[in-house]
Simulated assay, not measured.
Amino acid sequence: MRFDPWSPEFVAHPYDAYAELRQRPVTFFEPTGQWLVARHADVNALLRDRRLGRSYLHVATHTEFGRPEDPAFLDPFWRVIRAGMLDVEPPVHTRLRRLVSRAFTPRMVEALRPKVAAIATGLVEDFVARGGGDLVAEVAEPLPVTVIAEMLGVPEADRHLLRPWSADICGMYELNPSVETQRTAVRAAEEFSGYLSELARARRADPGDDLISALALVADGGDTLTEEELVGTCVLLLNAGHEATVNVTGIGWWSLFRNPAELERLRADHGLLPTAIEELMRWDTPLQMFERWVLEDISVGGVDIPRGAEVALLFGSANRDPEVFAEPDRLDLGRRENPHISFGAGIHFCLGAPLARIELAESFGALLRLAPRLELAAEPTWRPGYVIRGLTALEVRV
């Protein structure tokens, strides 16, 4: 199979194509004008290499980089996205991450564990009482949305708005998005930004015990987040903070159903859960690609890649690299040496990784306890997206 990110067959199983790509240091992919990087060592190194960036606008204009100007209709989208830390580079990224880290602390995240456990248990109890259904829509999606909404302080009556906004914005991260997808993302960014701006202003005036209040008040030597930066940060926290958890849950259970011996192993020993979650993230990765711009000429495996080029780092391929993982195509829930890069690496390593791990542990744990004979009711279909990869639904019986 060849690399074809618009093919449903490839999206469902890209790993044979990745094995071929790993035979070469890099491969130029004409349809997107990107250099595909498939080997773990190269992906890991380029994630940490400061000669590359998620953006180039801190060092050059679009024209200087040989790129077209952004269409004017995308301005509202980029204003929100570039106010968060994912699509900016130092020194702006350094400042934003420092400020956000003061509010979004490991201690705060760990303190959420009992609340996450209670939400997960309640969702699974209701799911079991109904006899099963769509695991994605009824357990995987509501858990992280509820958790991040409670963290941010979004009122319960408004939470139904969050997932559609997030999904529409994330459509822009797919390869060559259509104009319709772009316009949908702009509308979602405008609506989400307007909603959060109003909420942030209310919290600045009357702070509560929530993350928006903490972000609104956070300061470091007199430095604070602007309203645009606060909104951009909240959009990023919601998008990144639940897309991964939703997709790992759906794909993870589908992986277990495809590997019944490993599922029985986990059912017999819930103590395997920590390594099992890491292995499920490695074996069938939700975030398949992370793109970066080349800010200075580089060489990968002896192949020169010039300034102005874009590299596509293939996380799913890196996570199946036999140079790093013994028997990489085998799901091994007890795998101890597991340096997967599903959360990235370097300065853009996922800030929400600790929270995602807590949510996954509590969600999988509750299902193992309360639905010990969970079984597949219908083979799932994949959403059309390749970069952010997930199932449309996962129908199961308890």
Rank of each mutant, 00 (worst) to 15 (best):
residue 366 A to K: 02
residue 305 I to V: 15
residue 77 F to V: 07
residue 289 M to S: 14
residue 219 A to N: 09
residue 84 G to A: 14
residue 139 V to I: 14
residue 142 P to C: 10
residue 204 R to S: 10
residue 191 E to S: 09
residue 296 E to S: 13
residue 267 R to M: 13
residue 325 F to S: 02
residue 39 R to I: 12
residue 362 E to I: 11
residue 234 C to R: 04
residue 160 H to Y: 15
residue 293 W to H: 14
residue 6 W to T: 13
residue 231 V to K: 00
residue 191 E to N: 07
residue 18 Y to Q: 06
residue 365 G to K: 03
residue 104 F to M: 09
residue 40 H to Q: 12
residue 14 P to V: 11
residue 220 D to K: 07
residue 228 E to D: 15
residue 172 M to T: 04
residue 304 D to T: 15
residue 371 A to D: 06
residue 160 H to S: 15
residue 349 F to R: 12
residue 151 M to H: 01
residue 53 G to F: 06
residue 126 D to M: 07
residue 26 V to H: 01
residue 293 W to I: 07
residue 8 P to N: 08
residue 328 P to L: 09
residue 88 V to F: 06
residue 281 M to H: 01
residue 179 V to M: 14
residue 60 A to F: 01
residue 135 L to R: 02
residue 204 R to M: 10
residue 192 F to Q: 03
residue 124 V to H: 00
residue 58 H to A: 12
residue 79 R to V: 06
residue 253 W to A: 10
residue 245 T to S: 14
residue 80 V to R: 01
residue 200 A to E: 05
residue 134 D to Q: 07
residue 186 V to R: 00
residue 118 A to L: 12
residue 118 A to G: 09
residue 339 P to I: 14
residue 310 E to W: 04
residue 129 A to L: 13
residue 29 F to V: 11
residue 65 F to S: 12
residue 394 L to T: 08
residue 294 V to D: 06
residue 330 R to Y: 02
residue 75 D to K: 10
residue 329 D to F: 07
residue 61 T to D: 07
residue 41 A to P: 02
residue 165 W to Q: 10
residue 175 L to V: 12
residue 261 A to Y: 03
residue 56 Y to K: 06
residue 330 R to C: 13
residue 320 R to L: 09
residue 2 R to M: 12
residue 272 L to A: 06
residue 280 L to T: 08
residue 316 G to E: 04
residue 5 P to W: 03
residue 2 R to S: 11
residue 128 V to A: 13
residue 105 T to R: 03
residue 285 T to V: 11
residue 298 I to Y: 00
residue 258 R to T: 10
residue 72 A to N: 06
residue 284 D to M: 11
residue 128 V to S: 02
residue 235 V to M: 07
residue 131 G to R: 05
residue 266 L to Y: 00
residue 291 E to H: 11
residue 100 V to C: 05
residue 303 V to C: 08
residue 126 D to S: 15
residue 272 L to W: 03
residue 183 R to F: 05
residue 180 E to G: 12
residue 364 F to V: 11
residue 256 L to W: 00
residue 83 A to T: 03
residue 4 D to C: 08
residue 215 L to C: 04
residue 153 G to R: 01
residue 159 R to L: 12
